[in-house]
Design a protein around this nucleic acid. Sequence first.
DNA 1: TAAGATTTTGCAAATGATTTTCATTTGAAA
DNA 2: TTTCAAATGAAAATCATTTGCAAAATCTTA
Lengths: 138, 138
Amino acid sequence: MEKLTIPKGYKTTKQRKAILEILEENITPMHAEDIYLKLKEKGIDVSLSTIYRNLDMLQKQGLVVKAYMLNEDKARFGLSSKKNYLICKNCKKIVIIDNCPFEKFKEELMEVHGFDILEHSIEVYGICPDCKKQEVNE
Amino acid sequence: MEKLTIPKGYKTTKQRKAILEILEENITPMHAEDIYLKLKEKGIDVSLSTIYRNLDMLQKQGLVVKAYMLNEDKARFGLSSKKNYLICKNCKKIVIIDNCPFEKFKEELMEVHGFDILEHSIEVYGICPDCKKQEVNE
DNA sequence: TAAGATTTTGCAAATGATTTTCATTTGAAA
DNA sequence: TTTCAAATGAAAATCATTTGCAAAATCTTA
């Protein structure tokens, strides 16, 4: 996992560093407010507007991905490297799909539709192993 | 393409029929307001709140899928059958992926992560054939 | 086919996430 | 240091979506 750095041309502020740190620590893409609260826990006070502004900048720089999950109406933000995930419909746990199998059919998709493919995002919903166990026991 | 019907237990109103019709006519998932405007063009006046309420109902019934596209902050709604798509980053054209290749790696994903997979959504971004041509000519 | 029960609708007001404004502070180049 | 553009916080503004409520439409059944 490569250490992230503040993009060139942007100043290094303690707020910015803190936000990036939180994103690195969390596997799950987070709501802006989650980030705000986690920072507060650490004793770092960053205003919500600053968080939004920085997430926006980081997104434009390609470090962060913004996505809305099924049945949610607030955006989540996560590092780009964690773009494809499995979500448990029961406990909401999120698991990153590491070796995204998308590459395998990218070629096929390009041929069939004639698109040059640049990016993709995949969300898969299901029931995670833990929740499956519980269902059996109940 | 199967004709959609208003789910059992819900009354048949002209607004509801009109909304469903618009969704059937459009390949591209639409914003609530797009639907509002298209209806108005047809001379059918349906309030935005009614549109939102019905889309919500249709979603809960599984007929409609709600999704946010890259860099957009309003939800789009489309028929469930049109869930996976290619989006041109240049002209914003949307092409539905019909034979979604996801099935091919569903098994693999289930094995690796132990999830029971229920749903998925795939968004792919790239440049469409038309826009590629233009780039060459410019 | 009229009455009654229930849904659905439209409108206006409320909500809540995100964005913007602006005065102040901060980082970094010289 | 000094200087100046960039960044921040707080409060206000925005805008998609939701909700409350009274009126209208639908369906059921007598």
